[in-house]
Design a protein around this nucleic acid. Structure first.
Lengths: 202, 202
DNA sequence: TCCAAACCAAACATGGTTGTTCGAGTTCTG
DNA sequence: CAGAACTCGAACAACCATGTTTGGTTTGGA
């Protein structure tokens, strides 16, 4: 009955934290980052890493889960009610750079984790945006001549490409959000309806 | 004057062709494909591959150059004059799946080739579209409140994402072109102007 | 026909990554 | 403070990819 507690010591928890955090950073930069690299970045020995994670896959899974949880936390705090255009703008503003790191990690995860696990982790975040887009369509704010799945794909693709443009030095990070917003709102506008004027300061 | 010919025998040229073609396919599927894999796919021995290419980088370069040349050939045949909207539609129709394989190869190239070489190869194709978009802006058909580089980035991103959607089984290949066209034309429309009605058959 | 050019399989060296084991040192926790 | 939990460096085995060499066989071209 000695269900005392975590049975893990404080320094062990500290190491695990450092490893998961380093993994998220390294894999976000390069999906092929080695475990040596991750361990070094975490400031722990390679052996210590293996003491806490049985395989490379477990490290990737932990980093992925963590990033998704973080992102979810932020996105769940965004108010998606009211005018769908404004709601989408708020969503983009809050989440465009989160999506990026998740996407980079996802590239690593896709080679190491079973497909089911990935879908499982990715299901939560997708649902809220999907609901918003569906509502916008029902209210006539977003086009209905293209499938919802396609619209969401466009949203993700544009956000993702923005971070790549920034990394390549072709886009000023401060302008990213307004460019994404202007582009996506136009792409979502039903045919025959005028494209909305940008409102956020350029 | 005995510029007889290539000094290469016919079977050697055949092997090289097979290797470059196999490399384009394999690397397009998986940027990490090994040379053994490529040689096997080409139906030649690994040693033969090394007889014609000094290093992995040379193979990647050859595959990349070839794909770019092929793509260029097709795209240069597209008529980009007249109504910018219709011209862009023709461009997308002809090139949306070419862009994909080039992009997959590009992922492999970016890790193996110097940045300068990549820019060099990529410069040609970009120029024609850029000119089209610039003309469309000058004629008031495309928006001018976003940089040209950003608009072209959006075009590429949407085309690229479409091929990923197809690969994941979430998009019917026959609908891809019309979806891309509808999305991009809307995204390019100047604020205040109505989004164009789709004309191509769904 | 005849030889050089091209092919191939097998084997080698090299270097990197993944996991694992060992022994000795360090640090948390009771 | 004492022992258990944790950490670490070094070194091991296994695997895979890159290049290279060797020697023997096929094949193209003159």
């Amino acid at each position: 009955m000695s269900s005392k507690s975590t049975t893990k010591r404080a320094d062990a928890l500290r190491s695990i934290e450092a490893i998961v955090q380093a993994a998220a950073e390294c894999l976000g930069r390069n999906p092929d980052a080695s475990l040596s690299e991750i361990a070094r970045a975490a400031g722990v020995g390679r052996v210590t890493l293996y003491a806490h994670f049985a395989s490379r896959a477990e490290v990737v899974d932990a980093a992925m889960s963590r990033a998704l949880d973080r992102g979810n936390e932020v996105l769940n705090a965004v108010d998606l009610t009211g005018d769908p255009l404004l709601a989408l703008e708020r969503y983009i503003d809050a989440g465009w750079h989160l999506v990026d790191q998740a996407q980079a990690l996802l590239a690593a995860a896709q080679r190491e984790l079973p497909a089911g696990r990935i879908r499982e982790l990715h299901a939560g975040p997708a649902a809220r945006v999907e609901a918003l887009v569906a509502r916008g369509r029902a209210e006539g704010a977003f086009r209905t001549d293209l499938p919802i799945a396609w619209l969401i794909n466009v949203l993700q693709a544009v956000m993702h490409s923005a971070t790549e443009e920034i990394r390549a030095g072709r886009l000023n990070p401060e302008r990213a959000a307004s460019h994404i917003t202007a582009t996506v709102l136009a792409a979502f506008t039903p045919p025959g309806i005028p494209v909305p004027e940008p409102r956020g300061g350029a």
